[in-house]
Design a protein around this nucleic acid. Structure first.
Ligand SMILES: [Mn+2]
Ligand SMILES: [Mn+2]
Ligand SMILES: [Mn+2]
Ligand SMILES: [Mn+2]
Lengths: 233, 233
DNA sequence: AGCCAATATTAGGCATACCTAATATTACAT
DNA sequence: ATGTAATATTAGGTATGCCTAATATTGGCT
């Protein structure tokens, strides 16, 4: 059991760390001030100020290079992945135990993820049977582990005519989630992209269905796909 | 369905409202600056400042008279009782569903009570079967209702030799709760106070037991008792 | 009535985390 | 190599909610 002294972070700091993780992508590349401001819904000077303060702290959570961007230190990554674990465990718990619909879970999880204790995290994981996937198809990181970054691509970049499976969907827009559910676009569903249309929309053939459905580019942006799994293990 | 626009309160304001409710007692009498500072663990000038700001707000949550004290308005009472409902529902949920022990629930509930949504409150109440009593014997207020103020008195003030039942115990000290459990002093337990000793401790005879146990005055202060219920309805 | 201790308020500061306006840096395009 | 648009930083300000030190009010006691 490694010493994981959960260093005190505020809700704001948490949100910065998570945003840096999510924007940095698999390569954990530097994230710009602008990108953070956009994602967090605040102004760039606020971001600069916060990054400067964060970078001064010991032990530091981020490495900040003026005018260059910011990336997470090992400690920053650990906290960010912990928040992702909280978020996804909470979403699954709200969905499976408290019977929230899949478009209702995100907002509540986004708030509570900052405030639950280690014990709460552990007990929720236990009653869910140490789950691996959240209601939107996202991988739930294991405790003290950096999360898995899967080989999934946005639906808009999947080649025409090639079979795919929906790997996950974005949890950020409740309206999009309701629409996806109505159309049957949920994790695990098989599909083929038939055609791309002028306005950026896609014609999709779902699993067994015969006629394709039309999916707007905004909605398609919420869907990540991967090659179908050949055999279930 | 009355219009209950949950006016925005911060965690700090919430804590003031709850403290005013708890210190004001059944008569909802005025609460002093000093008492609030003591209960909240902050200094008196901070309390004065907060009360002045709160009293200015519209719609106002408190009525503040300089040098006289503060009391809750109807809106303030509504929010305070809502927090008490959150707190007690959460404690029961943590205890019954997440298998927390009764000395672990308070701290977590104290934090989460500020952040759960109406939906969360409703769903937790539903899976618990609209419960009425929390793990420490406290009455859970119903939705949109001021809580019941029961006819219970501190153990230290119960007359010698008169049968009593433990009505509830304080949830604020985890150490005290562990000790109470060890001694079998839990809600619903019948007892008689045999004797009061010099140092302020009490000799208590529990239900069927023959030899009395010794309870320190600190511990006794955590126990509230009432006359035994004559018939269960 | 007047004094004193307890209680409360005012005055002035600090940390967090935002904001707008002004200025500086970077990097691309010619 | 240099101008310019995009990006970022600095400067200065606000609101919240706490702090200590200094001052004022209250109410009980002689
Ligand atoms: Mn958040
Ligand atoms: Mn999710
Ligand atoms: Mn609280
Ligand atoms: Mn309780």
């Amino acid at each position: 059991m490694p010493k994981q002294s959960t260093l005190a972070t505020t809700e704001s700091v948490d949100d910065y760390l998570k945003a840096i993780l999510e924007l940095g992508g698999a390569e954990a590349s530097q994230v710009t001030t602008n990108a953070l401001a956009g994602r967090l819904g605040i102004r760039t000077p606020s971001v600069t100020g916060m990054l400067q303060k964060l970078a001064l702290q010991r032990p530091s959570l981020v490495v900040y290079e003026k005018h260059r961007g910011v990336r997470l230190t090992a400690a920053g990554k650990r906290r960010a992945w912990e928040l992702v674990r909280h978020h996804r465990l909470l979403e699954l718990f709200l969905h499976d135990v408290l019977k929230y619909s899949w478009d209702e879970v995100h907002e509540e999880a986004e708030r509570l993820e900052h405030f639950i204790s280690e014990r709460f995290e552990d007990r929720v994981a236990a009653i869910l049977g140490d789950p691996e996937i959240d209601p939107h198809g996202h991988v739930i990181p294991q405790k003290y582990e950096a999360g898995v970054l899967r080989d999934e691509v946005p639906l808009a970049r999947w080649p025409l005519g090639t079979p795919a499976t929906i790997s996950s969907v974005s949890d950020r827009s409740a309206a999009a989630l309701r629409e996806l559910e109505r159309l049957g676009l949920m994790p695990g569903v098989a599909l083929t992209v038939e055609r791309r249309n002028a306005a950026g929309s896609h014609s999709i053939r779902l699993g067994a269905h015969t006629e394709p459905i039309r999916v707007s580019s905004d909605l398609a942006a919420c869907v990540l796909v991967a090659a179908p799994v050949t055999a279930l293990s």
